[in-house]
């Protein structure tokens, strides 16, 4: 399941996805502006400082999590079947109920899991965004 976007703790440098996080000390959130009550707000996203970047990074990471959890199984499915066909050559001759297995898999069976993964991704991505919205609205 996806980790909800966590309100990030302001730190010295918070990496964006793709950057290697550097070892860093965790400090109390002392650098927030005084008018803030605790939860992050929309304006923080556009601030060119570490806090804004961290907030945006947490949204992107949560989205990317949903992406990976859907594309991972799909890519395994597509990449492993040809490999299986090399390792088990009898797949080319096998039949199920008088129909060639290749016709059943490539001509039909491989599509339902792809479609299910697609609709599942839509739900997950919308949930990630809803949670992030709740986080921002909580001020």
């Amino acid at each position: 399941m996806s980790a909800p976007p966590v309100p990030p703790v302001p730190a010295e440098t918070v990496p964006l996805p793709g950057q290697t996080p550097a070892r860093q000390a965790v400090r109390a959130p002392a650098r927030r502006p005084a008018d803030r009550t605790g939860a992050p707000g929309r304006d923080d996203l556009l601030r060119q400082d570490d806090y804004g970047r961290a907030l945006l990074g947490s949204l992107m990471r949560a989205q990317l999590g949903a992406t990976v959890s859907v594309l991972g199984p799909a890519i395994l499915l597509l990449a492993l079947y040809p490999l299986l066909a090399v390792l088990v050559p009898s797949l080319a001759r096998d039949q199920v109920a008088g129909i060639p297995l290749t016709l059943l898999v490539l001509g039909g069976g491989i599509y339902p899991p792809l479609v299910v993964l697609g609709f599942w991704y839509v739900r997950r991505a919308e949930r990630v965004e809803r949670r992030f919205g709740e986080l921002l609205d909580d001020r």
Binding site: A74, L78, L106, Y111, G118, Y121, V122
Partner: peptide, 16 residues
């Protein structure tokens, strides 16, 4: 038929 599978799966990648 892998062409067809790829043409369809391309939309899963595009979507995600």
């Amino acid at each position: 038929l892998w062409y067809a599978v790829g043409y369809a799966a391309g939309y899963l990648v595009l979507l995600a």
